[in-house]
């Protein structure tokens, strides 16, 4: 974009807060409103704001497109992987109480956090990918 110093400085200050807030929304989703989906969208919004102000090329220095596409698949894999781990440990698909190393109570809490992390990663990377794909042809 243009070389607006106010825009750039504000973005530099505000982006870390957006990213930390999204992680709070993810980790605190069991207690307060929020969860993986909302957290992922806010995390993606931070990156989108960065790439809107500094350009997509600056974004590729942080996270390349290959990594973003890899992350879309990684999130679903984490979610489904939790299901298969519980199956291998003698439970049903996504029966969080059977996650190795946890009892029923903490297993449920950890299972929720694991699958929310999977949702978070997929939603974040898909939103970012959509934005990059839509905005890309404008640059050249």
């Amino acid at each position: 974009m243009n070389k607006d110093i106010i825009l750039k400085t504000t973005t530099r200050i505000i982006v870390p807060f957006i990213l930390v807030f999204s992680l709070y929304v993810l980790a605190h989703g069991e207690i307060s409103p929020g969860g993986g989906f909302q957290g992922g969208v806010i995390f993606a919004a931070g990156f989108i704001l960065y790439s809107m102000v500094f350009g997509v090329e600056e974004l590729y220095k942080i996270i390349s497109k290959k990594v973003i596409i890899f992350l879309t698949a990684l999130g679903v894999s984490i979610y489904t992987g939790v299901g298969f781990i519980t199956m291998l440990n003698g439970g049903k698909f996504l029966e969080y109480a059977k996650i190795p190393g946890f009892d029923m109570k903490s297993g449920n809490a950890m299972g929720l956090l694991f699958i929310e992390t999977g949702v978070f990663i997929t939603v974040f990377s898909v939103m970012l990918l959509l934005y990059i794909e839509v905005a890309k042809k404008y640059d050249n």
């Binding site: 989703g29 069991e30 969860g35 489904t80 809490a109």
Partner: peptide
């Protein structure tokens, strides 16, 4: 049953975990 205070998250993640997958 799930230890989650937010019932919406518990339903999405635990009771309807397969749907969310």
């Amino acid at each position: 049953e799930t230890g989650a205070v937010n019932i919406v998250t518990a339903i999405l993640g635990s009771y309807r975990g397969f749907d969310t997958n």
